[in-house]
Nucleic acid binder design. Structure first.
Lengths: 164, 164
DNA sequence: TATTGTTATACTCTATAACTATA
DNA sequence: TATAGTTATAGAGTATAACAATA
């Protein structure tokens, strides 16, 4: 996963249909090296894997965490509002909330002002749980810091501030 | 998508089960703001969407592009080698190659040295096509530059260089 | 025994469309 | 008519397991 070992100058060529047996580090990425999207994608995969592992004991994934956090900070939001804010399809949010509601972390309350919509709230249990999730998420964030460095992580957050 | 408008200091509170009608910009992200993973994920989604759109006419997605680029730069690689290098499951690469082979961009040649494996090559058509794909991918990269700034894009590539 | 490519299954995620009940 | 929540479906993508051919 760390990659980028010294690139051998003289590259082995394929000979009449024999598959090349080489180390992963020897394989050049060519144009991919210049694409931000490639690096960002690989980094995002690493970061999600660490998040899932760090919050493995409480069985919370990144999307679930983002939904709980936003509901916790904005009690009473409708499903549409949460979906729009987080860029989740409203159809997908239905299933996410079904699961979180079954786990007694979230409750849907029928809105009186607009009977089509639901006001979303954390349960008391959900509040307590979220506090723990945030502690674990902060631990995950420290892993990120260890991986890319404190200053780099902060610079990254600055660069990408517009995408939140 | 740009987000981060001025945050109203006094936040509207939910009142007895009425879903809050508010603008997306008013919804606070709370702890998510401090998580690199959240920003990286949103950025990655933006970047992939732009890539897919920019290469829409040639119908090439990011993963397909990465496979073609690596085969182009390292002709004769086995499927295992490509899968490992790009972090793709070998089972998934099978389907990706099926599709690229049907489109006559790639060919699998039975290896003589190890008859279990296939040596991967671009077809002549594949070489020509890849040149065009690279031109379009460079155009996409300029969109990224416009979005976050030239200096920020370069800094980002530096920070994430270890993940390629 | 282990590895390469393959097939198959399951679950997550994205993208739609259509339905219902409301507005 | 339009919107909120729901249901359903299809296609990517990820994660496994198992199998045949070969090493």
């Amino acid at each position: 996963m760390t990659a980028s070992a010294a690139q051998t100058p003289q590259r082995k060529r394929a000979v009449n249909g024999a598959a090349r047996r080489i180390d992963t580090d020897e394989i050049g990425l060519d144009a991919l090296v210049g694409h931000a999207g490639y690096a960002v994608r690989r980094f995002q995969i690493w970061i999600f894997q660490d998040f899932i592992k760090t919050l493995g004991d409480v069985d919370i994934r990144p999307t679930q965490y983002s939904v709980l956090t936003v509901i916790g900070a904005n009690p009473g939001l409708s499903q549409m509002a949460v979906a729009k804010r987080l860029g989740i399809e409203r159809a997908r949010l239905v299933h996410l909330l079904d699961s979180l509601e079954q786990r007694k972390l979230v409750k849907r309350i029928k809105s009186k002002s607009d009977r089509r919509s639901h006001a979303l709230h954390l349960t008391a249990q959900g509040e307590t749980a979220l506090t723990k999730f945030k502690r674990l998420a902060a631990e995950h964030e420290r892993h990120v810091e260890e991986k890319i460095g404190k200053a780099n992580r902060e610079r990254l957050l600055q660069i990408l501030a517009g995408f939140t």
